[in-house]
């Protein structure tokens, strides 16, 4: 499996989907923007795109468009808490450099 969710991340995603009341799963991707080239995309999925690669990780259906897949190969999505702030974090082995705040990156 090229991309995985940590167990904690999967639990939170299921939780959020539940609270939202609808949604098929989670879409991951990258797009070009930001100060250091690329940025991650993390969205709920309401309608399935036939081109997307689809797989299951800890009970969450994950969708990734084929173009993004090469940038995300081997990535683990984790859910962490830092002080009062909590959220998702991409542990991506492909990243060579990222901007100061880490919102965008380069491969």
């Amino acid at each position: 499996m090229p991309v995985t969710l940590s167990e904690r991340a999967a639990t939170h995603v299921k939780n959020f989907l539940n609270k939202r009341g609808k949604g098929l799963g989670l879409k991951l991707g990258v797009r070009t923007s930001g100060c250091s080239g690329m940025a991650y995309k993390l969205e709920f999925v309401d309608a399935e795109d036939p081109e997307d690669v689809k797989f299951d990780s800890h009970g969450v259906t994950v969708y990734i468009d084929p173009k993004s897949l090469s940038y995300l190969e081997g990535t683990e999505l984790d859910f962490v808490r830092e002080g009062l702030n909590e959220g998702f974090k991409f542990n991506n082995p492909n990243v060579k450099s990222q901007c100061g705040c880490g919102e965008s990156f380069n491969v």
Partner: peptide, 17 residues
């Protein structure tokens, strides 16, 4: 790195925005 939140479909915010 910055922590991300899940967005509504098609509404991912651009970095720093």
């Amino acid at each position: 790195m910055a922590l991300l939140q899940i967005s509504e479909p098609g509404l991912s915010t651009a970095p720093h925005q």
